[in-house]
Nucleic acid binder design. Structure first.
Length: 801
DNA sequence: AGCACGCCGACT
DNA sequence: GTCGGCGTGCTC
């Protein structure tokens, strides 16, 4: 038998399957979807078996060395999905498969030197081995030993090189202890023990009383002793251990209150019906639920999942990373208890692996997770749900650059089950598809508690400036915050920091401190008094004099959350403030701890960046303030209006979710901009219509598809030349109505000392585009290896900057 | 990617 | 000779 294997060598020339002979002892064991170790060239690499065959067009086949899995880690569906994913995103097959699996299933490669002779070796090697039989290959370089010495020794058969492939899998185990003899033998041993062996006697006495198996940890705690006493008794063979494999459970010590299905409103019922119908009849449709915040989308998800579980099928729920909050998890665990696996980036690699295994082994029927959970290895999917479907975080920003929505829809079609997209502010692409009837549109216009959305007040900051208020807080916002606090209620203040960071500029000569490796201003970090680059790891201390004109008047500009906090303290000294941003949430669990503090009313004001805009639900919050609504409106990104509208709508939903009425203050320099004005009126449909006109005029999605090709090189001219050649090649291969823009320098023209150029393709129908791009890039294969030219392709890019 | 192999110039 | 650097081509 022969196995087709995709090997773990990320190079375009290796992007194909290789045939291997299956040895007798693996016949019948090896199945498609398993990981194997195969010889490749002179070394061993990991690979995925993608298929089995009886013959191969190759005559000299090597043999599979090892099998890494007992059962396939990729189902047939996922094997096929990975192929499609790689081709659709112009990525490598191996990259696509790796992206579908938890980190720990990636192989680790190691080289070792083994000594084969007792005879003495050259001095340098002798001291390297230093009595050992095997040494890590890395030590060769550390010791600075020339390769020719090694080569010679290998030729003479004195030493040999081993190419190891190791799995990173670590399974967590618990040690149990129990007596290995009868009770009366223990008693005998007890009596024989010297009186000085007090701890041993205690241990024995314990097991004489209750000879059952006990967790080692509990035993030690109970008897106040240590591992060493137990070890002594183990050596005397009076006790024995056993190991039990367990899942790490990140939600181990939390109890989730059980919830029941809620009575649906008429609107919800109307939305629910066709979904239930699809589930029942195993039909695939994509439903777009456009529902205002608080309209009960989640309850619809929950009840759809209920139906799916009742049928013995499974469900995937995708949630943006940022809103995968404890509150969200609670809702799903509360309804479905231990049938839920949770996947998000805050879990350790081991925890992620365990959650993944619970899915693989059918211990759970539901997974709630961020983007990559769309690859959960379920085999009987009954529904796929994407909450906040407009979120950028569903688009992976490195290879394979896929969008979870596309993957979900493909899986939904494969399983003939519904896909539900939900949002208060659907992506323009999605709403347009719903308008065209490609998706089924359902609108939830009422909130379940029948409360109106909070009043949104726009504050024109130009007027503030004219009135002599130069602070970042308008008078109106300051008053509202004070009133809110004095009523004993809480406020959330959002600083939209994108494109508005704290750069350093000299007031004397206007010199701006930039990163020496990237064309971007350095960002000032107050707590370390350092200037940092957000694109590479460069940092330097904040200068006291301007490096250009020596003036002392070098200051930081812009507004970070830290400065906002300081300003707020001065303005409203009595306020207790919690700050939430990248800095304060870096530590594990910090995110959750801050939110808990706020929920426990240990603070009056929560201030932070994007991360507080979504998913939070605190009953005591009645005021939301947005400091700078238009800060991203002027970025060179065709989605900036859409993002502004989404953010304002999203954040306003944080106020007055329960009994207390809420209000929203939005500070802006452009209150007349349609995205801000229509957001304040909660009018998505008019925003959609307006924005569609803009997109049509400027030919942007959803009227065209985009592809972005970025070329970078340390050599400026080489990058420009390659980009030019690619653009030329594109022009020649695309149809006349397709537009190729560029090459132009990328928005950040230099990053990590590499010069960057880009070409943008706008197309409506270009069935051969992928293969054309592929062919064009292949021409640079040589150059990409020799020099360090890099070319990346992003089909349907989200982040243009 | 990572490795072997082969060619070349430099050095003891 | 011997050593080390680099370009080339291959991996079932």
């Amino acid at each position: 038998m022969i196995a087709n294997v995709i090997v773990d060598v990320p190079a375009s020339s290796i992007n194909q399957s290789f045939d291997y002979h299956i040895p007798e002892h693996f016949q019948g064991v090896i199945q498609p979807g398993m990981r194997v170790i195969v010889p490749f060239g002179s070394r061993n690499v990991m690979g995925f078996v993608t298929g089995l065959a009886h013959e191969s067009s190759h005559n000299k086949l090597k043999t599979i060395a090892e099998v890494l899995d007992l059962t396939p880690v990729l189902t047939d569906e996922l094997l096929e999905l990975g192929m499609w994913l790689a081709e659709d995103t112009l990525s490598l097959y191996i990259t696509a498969y790796q992206a579908m699996l938890p980190q720990v299933l990636k192989a680790n490669y190691k080289k070792e030197l083994e000594r084969l002779t007792d005879a003495s070796l050259p001095n340098q090697l002798e001291s390297l081995f230093a009595g050992r039989l095997v040494v890590p290959y890395d030590e060769l370089n550390d010791a600075g030993i020339g390769y020719h010495h090694v080569q010679k020794a290998i030729r003479q058969g004195d030493i040999t090189v081993h190419y190891l492939v190791k799995s990173r899998v670590t399974k967590k185990r618990i040690t149990y202890i129990k007596p290995s003899r009868d009770v009366h033998l223990l008693e005998e041993a007890y009596n024989d023990l010297s009186n000085r062996a007090k701890k041993q006697k205690e241990l024995l006495a314990y097991f004489i009383q209750q000879p059952e198996e006990i967790k080692l940890n509990s035993l030690l705690k109970k008897l106040g002793t240590t591992r060493s006493t137990v070890n002594t008794l183990l050596e005397k063979q009076l006790l024995e251990t056993s190991q039990q494999e367990i899942y790490r459970n990140p939600y181990d010590n939390q109890v989730f209150e059980r919830t029941e299905a809620l009575k649906l409103t008429d609107e919800q019922e109307k939305t629910m019906d066709p979904i239930k119908q699809d589930i029942k009849e195993e039909r695939h449709d994509v439903f777009l639920i456009h529902g205002v915040t608080g309209s009960g989308k989640t309850e619809i998800y929950l009840q759809a999942i209920q139906d799916v579980i009742a049928k013995g099928e499974e469900a995937i729920v995708l949630v943006p990373e940022i809103s995968l909050t404890p509150q969200m998890v609670k809702r799903f665990k509360g309804r479905f208890g231990s049938s839920v696996a949770v996947m998000h980036s805050a879990l350790s690699n081991g925890e992620k692996y365990d959650e993944w295994r619970r899915i693989q082994q059918k211990d759970v029927q539901v997974v709630v997770g961020a983007r990559s959970a769309v690859f959960a290895p379920f085999e009987n999917l009954g529904v796929l749900i994407i909450d906040e479907e407009h979120e950028n975080s569903y688009k992976q920003e490195d290879q394979p650059r896929y969008h979870a929505r596309d993957v979900a829809i493909r899986r939904g079609r494969h399983h003939q089950c519904p896909v539900i997209l939900g949002s208060a502010t659907p992506a323009l692409e999605s709403y347009a598809r719903a308008q065209k009837g490609v998706y089924q549109l359902a609108t939830l216009s009422k909130r379940t508690n029948n409360k109106a959305m909070p009043q949104m007040e726009l504050v024109d900051m130009r007027h503030e400036l004219h009135a002599g208020n130069r602070s970042m807080f308008s008078r109106s916002l300051k008053n509202k915050v004070e009133q809110c606090i004095s009523r004993g209620e809480q406020a959330v203040l959002l600083l939209n920091r994108r494109g508005y960071s704290t750069f350093v500029m000299c007031r004397e000569c206007g010199h701006v401190k930039e990163c020496p490796h990237c064309d971007i201003a350095l960002t000032f970090h107050k707590n370390s008094n350092q200037l940092k680059c957000h694109y590479c790891s460069y940092e330097e201390p904040m200068p006291t004099y301007c490096p250009s004109c020596n003036s002392e008047l070098i200051r930081f500009f812009g507004t970070g959350t830290q400065r906002m906090e300081e300003a707020l303290v001065q303005l409203i000294p009595q306020a207790r403030i919690l700050r939430m941003d990248v800095d304060t949430t870096r530590r594990k669990g910090a995110h959750e701890r801050l939110l808990n503090q706020f929920a426990n009313k240990e603070a009056d004001i929560l201030l932070g960046t994007q991360m507080i805009a979504k998913g939070l639900d605190f009953e005591n919050v009645t005021l939301v303030g947005v400091l700078t609504a238009d800060s991203m409106l002027h970025l060179p990104d065709f989605r900036s209006a859409e993002k502004t509208f989404q953010l304002l709508t999203q954040v306003s939903g944080r106020a007055g979710r329960h009994e207390l009425p809420g209000e929203v203050i939005v500070q802006t320099y452009t209150p007349e901009h349609y995205s801000i004005e229509l957001a304040s009126q909660y009018d998505y449909v008019r925003f959609y219509q307006n924005e569609m006109r803009v997109r049509k005029t400027f030919q942007y999605p959803p009227f065209v598809f985009l592809a972005l090709i970025t070329v970078s090189d340390e050599n400026h001219a080489a990058a420009a030349r390659a980009a030019q050649q690619i653009a030329k090649g594109l022009w020649q291969s695309v149809q006349t109505e397709t537009v190729v823009l560029g090459p132009t320098p990328s928005p950040i023209p230099r990053m990590k000392d590499r010069y960057r150029y880009q070409c943008m393709i706008k197309y409506k129908n270009e069935p051969n585009l992928r293969s054309s791009i592929h062919r064009l890039i292949a021409q640079f294969d040589d150059q990409m290896r020799k020099s360090n030219l890099q070319i990346t392709v992003d089909m349907q890019p989200y982040q243009l900057i």
